[in-house]
């Protein structure tokens, strides 16, 4: 059947939320996932393009931390002046596709697409990011780990829009790093990726946030591993293969088998922490 397409491109957030409340719309921003999902020459269905809503793009400091607007692109993130705790997020942004994708893809789109290999998710998990959702009825804030509930599955309601990601002040401490493993240099969907944020005081880890992506249905924090790091000097050795294997539920696909994912995730996490230790050393 021929689909009657409509294309809305409001300037005002209120207008967008009203349209969402009125009917079933597909939300479009960078379109780096929407277009690849169709072979048609135009986006299918009724589209709500949110890229003209200025308030949705950009990064700002707030009393509670940092607010990253929904349509902030990877390039925006790379170019932004952010604290060392966000370096992992910026490194992840640099590993998304290549410049063409970084110039278009948005941080909220990455979350809504909810791929197990979404590059933005592990670093955002280590930043305890929260997702701000708005609808005509109001605003709710959902922790990121509750927002993505499975491959391609989120708790976003049909009438809702992600308006921002909120990073709490308490998580903007320390330093972070990110590593991605794939079978080629650029334009690669990861086999595994790891992100780490550590707060070190007097040579001792006081806070550890570690996350692994592409190794299960959703990217996940690994609290068992984090606990091993607290109270010690930064030492990747505590991140054992066994510990990581119990913390994730690796998938097998065309890119790698499950056994490899478990081993490589542990190794990658150790290297992420090692790189982070070197960053810390350089910073002091």
């Amino acid at each position: 059947m021929t689909v009657i397409n409509s294309y809305l491109r409001p300037f005002a957030l209120e207008h967008a939320l009203e349209e969402l409340a009125a009917g079933s719309l597909r939300i479009a921003a960078g379109c780096t996932d929407l277009f690849p999902s169709t072979e048609h020459k135009q986006l299918q269905g009724s589209i709500l393009d949110i890229t003209r809503i200025k308030s949705l793009r950009g990064i700002s400091d707030t009393d509670d931390g940092i607010r990253i607007g929904a349509t902030t692109t990877w390039t925006d993130l790379i170019k932004a002046d952010l604290p060392p705790a966000c370096r992992g997020l910026q490194l992840a942004a640099q590993k998304v596709g290549a410049l063409q994708i970084q110039n278009r893809g948005t941080i909220a789109g990455n979350l809504c697409n909810a791929s197990p290999a979404a590059d933005g998710v592990p670093p955002l998990l280590t930043l305890d990011a929260k997702v701000e959702l708005q609808s005509k009825g109001g605003t709710r804030v959902v922790p990121l780990h509750d927002f993505i509930i499975g491959p391609r599955k989120t708790v976003l309601a049909e009438t809702e829009l992600i308006t921002a990601l909120l990073i709490p002040k308490s998580s903007l401490t320390g330093h972070s790093h990110f590593l991605k493993l794939g079978a080629r240099a650029y334009l690669v969907i990861s086999i595994a990726m790891t992100s780490a944020r550590l707060v070190v005081r007097n040579g001792v880890v006081v806070e550890a946030a570690l996350a692994i992506g592409s190794c299960g249905p959703v990217a996940t924090r690994v609290p068992q591993v984090e606990a091993q790091m607290i109270g010690k000097a930064v030492d990747p050795v505590v991140i054992t293969d066994d510990l990581v294997a119990t913390a994730i539920d690796p998938i097998a696909d065309m890119r790698a088998n499950a056994a490899y994912r478990a081993i490589s995730a542990a190794e990658l996490l150790r290297r992420t922490v090692l790189e982070l230790a070197m960053d810390l050393e350089a910073a002091t």
């Binding site: 294309y7 491109r9 479009a28 960078g30 379109c31 780096t32 277009f35 690849p36 135009q42 986006l43 589209i47 393009d49 890229t51 390039t75 410049l99 063409q100 994708i101 110039n103 278009r104």
Partner: peptide
């Protein structure tokens, strides 16, 4: 800035 034109809706 470089973009893949296949990913850009005309409206944008």
């Amino acid at each position: 800035a470089q973009h893949c034109a296949c990913l850009v809706p005309a409206g944008q």
